[in-house]
């Protein structure tokens, strides 16, 4: 398999309280050095709770935020967004909030036209042809083209967002919580559409979500993010059923499931570590039942724990 996307030590540090000149007062490490590979044709799921840096990571991949350190390679070529037209053809993004990602003062046709015109320089007749192909692929009626975004429901608007990303003809799509704003009955419509498009056009997905069940249903592999770092990565079928990192297990146990009695998987009332003042060692140690002195001193490395499953833990769970 060839690699579609490779991140090498990618990190992002945000300044806090920055004066006009001089260094900032504090820094927040939103994403700590992450090294990841997404193979062509796979769906890599990324899960994590709010504030774990998953959206920051995704936005760096499409150049909306410049990384602090590290490099990105897209389809073997070094990341280069100096020419927005060339860059947009390689990778595209689908946003979480379908309505606010569409300009309220443009018609749907104007919105879908933009990538065709700017990225591919297509003429008017070609564009109309291509738009009807794309609309057929995402199950939208062509009479929607003359309407404005506020006239659509969330599910329809999200399909328009997907149509816009497809129009760029990129082979890699970053999907940032594409269904979390949608109702469950509509969520499945969009997820199934994404699966169909992937088969038809041979796409590669990076699928970000906080919903473990959704991620499991669509992903080939899953990476679990905690406090800006990958704590575990492995095959989707294995990672939640046989987690090696205690945090992955906590996540899997917390999801409300029909037929499981109500228990708080964590006995203590715990909170995420303070990003302004990160603890030394493992960032999960304060919440972890298996934590030892070693965990509070030394930050664990992401290492292979067998079966293609990598976890950053000194005391991994038994498979």
């Amino acid at each position: 398999m060839t690699e579609a996307l490779h991140l090498d030590n990618l990190s992002k540090t945000f300044p806090v309280g920055k004066p006009l000149f001089g260094p900032p007062k504090f820094t927040v490490k939103a994403v700590r050095p992450v090294t990841l590979t997404v193979e062509t044709g796979e769906t890599l799921g990324i899960v994590g709770e709010s504030g774990c840096g998953k959206s920051t990571l995704a936005r760096m991949l499409v150049g909306l935020i410049p990384p602090t350190t590290g490099t990105i390679r897209i389809e073997g070529k070094a990341f280069d967004n100096a020419d927005p037209a060339a860059f947009g053809k390689s990778i595209q993004y689908v946003f979480q909030d379908p309505i606010s990602s569409l300009n309220p003062r443009k018609t749907i046709r104007q919105i879908i036209d933009a990538p065709l015109k700017r990225l591919h320089g297509m003429g008017k007749a070609d564009r109309a042809q291509r738009i009807s192909e794309i609309f057929a692929a995402v199950n939208l009626r062509e009479d929607f083209l003359t309407r404005y975004p506020h006239e659509f429901s969330g599910g329809q608007a999200q399909r328009i967002g997907i149509a816009r990303a497809l129009a760029a003809n990129a082979r890699i799509l970053i999907l940032d919580e594409p269904v979390s704003a949608l109702d469950v009955s509509v969520q499945a419509q969009v997820l199934n559409l994404l699966a169909k498009l992937k088969r038809e056009f041979g796409l590669t997905y990076l699928f970000i979500s906080h919903d473990l069940a959704v991620v499991e249903a669509v992903s080939t592999r899953v990476a679990v993010l905690y406090f800006g770092a990958v704590v575990e990565i492995g095959e989707a079928e294995a990672i939640f059923s046989r987690p090696r990192h205690p945090y992955t297990r906590l996540l899997a146990d917390s999801a409300p499931v029909v037929g499981r009695p109500l228990t708080a998987p964590e006995g203590r009332e715990t909170e995420l570590p303070d990003p302004l003042n990160p603890p030394p060692g493992c960032s999960f140690a304060a919440r972890c039942p298996r934590a030892t002195d070693l965990c509070r001193r030394v930050e664990p490395e992401l290492t292979d724990k067998g079966d293609h499953q990598l976890a950053a833990c000194h005391h991994p769970l038994d498979p």
């Binding site: 947009g88 595209q92 993004y93 946003f95 606010s100 933009a114 990538p115 700017r118 967002g161 760029a168």
Partner: peptide, 10 residues
């Protein structure tokens, strides 16, 4: 987000 989307549209 629509401004980000416009950037990605080239």
């Amino acid at each position: 987000e629509f401004v980000d989307a416009a950037k990605l549209s080239g």
